[in-house]
């Protein structure tokens, strides 16, 4: 399997461990990721605040680059996935708009056609029946007894009209992956809610409250670890967890993993290689559980 990999900005910046673990996981699964080095940022729904057409033009350019490579495009960030998909939907549903955007791209040598390649989150390619079979066959350290709570990230789920990811209210893709890895999924209400990251600069307390409520919900549901497909959710839930703890008095800290890290652990890759130690939150409980699985 070969894909064009849209890395996004954060996996090259504050969460480089996501990039590292993604490449290790891909290697172990025999997936060939070709990094899209000239693709620009998806805009994160922020560039479109200033100029919707600018955001769509940048994303049309990225999609066009994948088309040129004739490879399906994979993202490792719920935000990138959601925002790129939204642009794709807008362009595909409005020929006139697509033409306008292509006119802007023309001089750079790119043209977006649409319908030629598929745009998917890494979780999407693993959560198919074939993907799950493959995972099961490659698991060397089943994560038995590990209770894993998914945190999806808003952008892949909503607006569902423009996401085509999963059932927006009852997604199951991540949990299916956890099961394939031998872990026990934890279902809790907040798994489809917002992590608060987009407003951390504007309304810090509300942002931390949102993240805190989600963490409390996961903890109360018995989660050993929360796994997210979005590095922004990761920043909110992990990097800010000390502030959140102060605000919400959680009384318990919970480690947050990137999805590829969890997969890689089950595939037998050492947690150091996955740079899990770079996370702000690391708890003895989790380390112990991992040790028992022989994964630490």
């Amino acid at each position: 399997m070969k894909f064009a990999l849209f890395t996004g900005c954060v996996s090259k910046g504050a969460t480089r461990e996501l990039m590292v673990s993604t490449m290790k996981t891909a290697e172990a699964l025999g997936i060939d990721f070709v990094e899209m080095k000239s693709a620009a940022c998806c805009g994160a729904g922020v560039v479109s605040e200033q100029s919707p057409i600018l955001a769509d033009a940048l994303n049309a350019r990225s999609l066009a680059i994948a088309e040129e490579q004739n490879l399906d495009m994979v993202t490792i960030c719920s935000t990138c996935q959601g925002i790129l998909k939204k642009s794709e939907c807008k362009l595909d549903s409005d020929e006139e708009y697509k033409e306008k955007v292509n006119y802007v791209l023309k001089e750079g040598g790119h043209q977006y056609t649409g319908g030629k390649i598929k745009l998917k989150h890494f979780a999407n390619i693993l959560a198919t029946p074939e993907g799950l079979e493959m995972l099961k066959s490659k698991v060397v350290r089943p994560l038995e007894g590990l209770k894993v709570a998914a945190f999806y990230g808003c952008y892949v789920l909503r607006p569902s009209e423009q996401s085509e990811y999963d059932d927006p209210d009852n997604p199951t893709g991540m949990e299916d992956i956890f099961e394939a890895l031998g872990a026990t999924p934890v279902y809790y209400e907040s798994r489809v809610k917002c992590c608060g990251f987009p407003i951390v600069m504007m309304n810090k307390k509300a942002s931390h409250d949102m993240a805190g409520n989600a963490l409390a919900d996961a903890i109360q549901s018995g989660a050993d670890v929360v796994v997210t497909g979005c590095p922004l959710c990761h920043l909110s839930l992990d990097s800010y967890q000390p502030e959140i703890d102060k605000l919400k008095q959680l009384g318990y800290s919970v480690p947050i993993l990137h999805l590829p890290q969890l997969v890689a652990l089950a595939l037998g890759i050492d947690s150091k290689e996955l740079e899990i130690h770079k996370h702000i939150v690391s708890t003895p409980n989790f380390e112990n559980k991992l040790a028992k699985l022989g994964a630490a």
């Binding site: 090259k12 910046g13 000239s38 620009a40 033009a57 350019r61 791209l105 750079g108 790119h110 702000i280």
Partner: peptide, 26 residues
């Protein structure tokens, strides 16, 4: 402390001139 700070030297994407051109065009 955890080594999580983004690189101090900020790298551009390849072919950043095309990105700049799009900004200019719009």
């Amino acid at each position: 402390k955890k080594g999580k700070i983004p690189p101090i030297i900020h790298h551009s994407v390849d072919d950043v001139d095309d990105v700049k051109r799009i900004f200019k065009e719009l």
